[in-house]
Design a protein around this nucleic acid. Sequence first.
DNA 1: GTTAAGATTTAGGTATGCCAAAACTTGAAG
DNA 2: CTTCAAGTTTTGGCATACCTAAATCTTAAC
Lengths: 207, 207
Amino acid sequence: MVPNSALAEEMGVSPGSVSEMLGKLATLKLIVHDPYRGARLTAAGLKVAVEMIRHHRLIETYLVQALGYGWDEVHEEADRLEHSISELLEERMWQALGRPAFDPHGDPIPAPDGTLVEHPTLPLQSAPAGSEVVISRISDRDPAKLRAVERLGLTPGRRVLVVEQSVWEGPIVVSLDGSPISVPLGLARAIRVEDIRVEDGGRHPPA
Amino acid sequence: MVPNSALAEEMGVSPGSVSEMLGKLATLKLIVHDPYRGARLTAAGLKVAVEMIRHHRLIETYLVQALGYGWDEVHEEADRLEHSISELLEERMWQALGRPAFDPHGDPIPAPDGTLVEHPTLPLQSAPAGSEVVISRISDRDPAKLRAVERLGLTPGRRVLVVEQSVWEGPIVVSLDGSPISVPLGLARAIRVEDIRVEDGGRHPPA
DNA sequence: GTTAAGATTTAGGTATGCCAAAACTTGAAG
DNA sequence: CTTCAAGTTTTGGCATACCTAAATCTTAAC
């Protein structure tokens, strides 16, 4: 159940517009709407959503892999293109890339049938000191943060040791290849990691 | 000067809608509108239009060249994508393709600065019997026609001899590599050729 | 020169998506 | 159990883009 206000905030649109749109989506059977309480995707709605996520992540991967984009340059472009590519183009890009399972930010790419394997991760600032973690996913929303993360070398697949947790909103200190790295809390929030004890069967993206 | 009705026909939209839109475009200074007479692009309008044509042809070329599309599959996809690609993506595709000057249908791709070199061609059905011509451009609009043209081997760059002009709407007969080919008038109308006497400085697309 | 055919514009209507502000629920505090 | 603030929905409006039908204008044929 997502509250109305969260959607309005997320989409940069007025609460009234959200209510209106939820009504339409409910009519289309894409969501169930419990008035004054929130909305949830139906199976049909989830299918549409996952298809769009597949488009988005595939496009991001293609732009980086095939056209030399930086991982900080792809989000906006993908946001526009995800709505206009055909199933054929989706398929061709997927094949051209060798059927990738992860996008450049470490987010899993849903399979053609809509299967989406999310394996458990936690935000870097929640990882306990002393734990060994693998950088798993970086939020693709803020290009500046992506560049900062890249500069620190904290790209998906890298293994780091959490040396110091954040105290009083201070930076988190991790160790990468033996060197200590100070990660501002704002950056850490955009980084999700996988605890090393959780075996992942090699499913996380390559460094 | 394009008459209003031609636009309505072309766009599959009512004449009233065309008038309305022309008014808006005139407000935006993209066209000059001479009521009851027609409309013409201004320099600013031409720039926008050529940019969109560049997008369209570049996308078509990219889909064929990089993603294995058939030349009959690209028009629709390009029509949707041409409006949502960034200048960066345009540039990257162009570079990835080696700065092509022609799309898969033989249509010239405008240069980044908007320069568009159209060299003179004539519809195949207008080529005099006995003339030697080079297949220059095939209309990308009708996929079925493109497949038919391809089956006949009349792809851009091929040189043919016009053996027989159309009589009473009958087929045109051309000779390709010595073999006679009968081209239905409806197909010939989609094919533009370049008279061999007009030197083209190698600007036409490769076979 | 009329005038009728054909093209263009106007008028009135549909549907979408957004907003601001008014009206309404809900749930938690008193 | 009442009240009220926060959050949600409704209402009334604006803008876009399209349509049909009716009114109006052009032009080309007599």
